[in-house]
Design a protein around this nucleic acid. Structure first.
Ligand SMILES: [Zn+2]
Ligand SMILES: [Zn+2]
Ligand SMILES: [Zn+2]
Ligand SMILES: [Zn+2]
Lengths: 128, 128
DNA sequence: AGACTTATTGCGAACGGTTGTCAATAAGCC
DNA sequence: GGCTTATTGACAACCGTTCGCAATAAGTCT
């Protein structure tokens, strides 16, 4: 049976307090800096669980690092992420959804999944 | 000045002989199995160079591994990749290009780049 | 061709993110 | 309170990739 620990609670809370995507290590650092004694391995485990129960989204950064975010939308959606500050907007991409399905079907592919992310500089970070 | 070595030549040749995306390690294994004495680090370096001079495309697999391919199209394009055998089709995604630009602009983002890949099972691998 | 310069190689160590191991801890239940 | 066992924390192991450096060899000059 799944147990409720302050560690899981703390990870959930911290993730909710951040607006953009964060790495497991960054989240761990923030918690440690705030005085938490949680371990890195536990942060990884909690994040993996959250993604598993669809309470968090994850994506691979261009550098190959896994990033996490507590998302507002429940259903399938994509993200517009600021490369500088990590600020994230959830975006609905219906045209892309149908396009992806069509292009896969047209080539005889089945069980198609797609990776669609837009990275850029948000309005604030664009000012420099 | 850039020098021409049989190692770089060999990597280019081997990459051209493969139709889909391959990892650096897989390419290295193929070359070794074929009798080459090239080193893994050199394969990495050659692939990085090829990508730099736009003679090869690279993408991050869902597992976070870098994959490489000698692509036919010169311009910007995307890929439909078989998760099982790596077979790849180059796809033109004009609707996605404009969509990505629009959604970025609509949120005040600048210097937008996008990651768009479709993974699935090719016709052959779907039969199993 | 031979000598020289220096880009490139190969090897092994190092790195960064992530996962596994396992004894110690503590959550939920009686 | 005591029992069971999921969960934790510390550390080792892992995997893909990069780095450091001495040895090699490509291109250049004579
Ligand atoms: Zn989201
Ligand atoms: Zn989608
Ligand atoms: Zn296939
Ligand atoms: Zn594109």
């Amino acid at each position: 049976m799944k147990r409720n620990t302050w560690q899981r609670e703390a990870v959930t809370t911290e993730l909710n307090a951040i607006n953009g995507f964060v790495s497991a290590q960054a989240l761990f650092a923030r918690m440690r800096d705030a005085g938490s004694t949680i371990s890195l391995a536990t942060v990884y485990r909690a994040l993996t669980d959250l993604v598993g129960e669809k309470a968090a989204d994850s994506l691979l950064s261009p550098e190959g690092e896994n990033l996490y975010r507590a998302c507002a939308s429940d259903g399938h959606h994509h993200h517009l992420i600021c490369r500088s500050c990590g600020a994230t907007a959830e975006i609905n991409a219906e045209p892309v959804e149908s396009w992806a399905q069509q292009v896969a079907a047209a080539h005889g592919f089945t069980q198609a999944q797609h990776v669609v992310d837009v990275f850029g500089l948000c309005a604030d970070c664009s000012l420099t």
